[in-house]
Amino acid sequence: MVESPSMTLPLAPARPLTALAAASRDVAAARLVALGDAARLVFRGREAAIGPAGEAFGVALPRESCRFNAAGGRFAFWLGPDEWLLLAPGAEAAPIFAAIEAATSGLPHSLVDVSARSVGIEIAGERAAFVLNQGNPLDLSLDAFPVGMCTRTVFHKAEIVLVRHAPDVFHIDVWRSFAPYVWELLEDARRELA
C-alpha cells in the first residue's frame, strides 16, 4: 500500500502575514517585520525538570519573573513560575522536542509543540514603544520594561507575548489567527509616522 504524502508530511507552517507584510509601508521610526518560521515549545514543569529541560534546549530557563535568556540564537521566555516558551528561529521542532523529552524522562512536566500556533512580528525603531502603547497599557519605559523583559499581555483585544530585545526592538508573538488583527492595528497606530 502506498501512503499518500500528506500522511507523512508535517503541517505546512501558517503564514497569515505574507500578503500584509508585502503591502506594508516602510516607516523608519517603527519598522514592521513578519518573522520567519520557528520552533516553538511550551514547557511546564516542577523544580526537578526545569534544569535538565534548559540544558537540553541549550538555554537555561530563567527563574526571575518576566525575563528571558538567550544563547546560540535560541530563547527561553518566562511566561509563568512553571511555564516557559522556548523559541528557536529557523529550527525544526522535532529534534528539540526529543532532546528535552530525553533529558526530562521520568520527571513530572509537560512539553507541547506549539510551532504552528503563533507567528512572530518584530517592531523596531525609535517610536516602536509609542506604537505598541496605542494598544497596550503597559509602561514601556526602560525602567519599567527593560531590555531582557518578556511577558504575556494584550494588544487591543488580542493576547500577545511581548519581548524587548533592545531599547528600540520588540518582538511580538501572537496566535496566528489573531496576527492580521494585530498587524493591521500596528499599521493603523503608525499611520501618523513618516
Binding site: 519573573s65 511566561l79 509563568g80 513560575p81 511555564e83 511577558t151 504575556r152 499581555t153 494584550v154 493576547e159
Partner: peptide
Amino acid sequence: LHAERWRHIHGCGR
C-alpha cells in the same frame, strides 16, 4: 474589605 481570587490570565496565568 473582601478577600477574593484574581487570575493574571493575560500575564503569568496564576
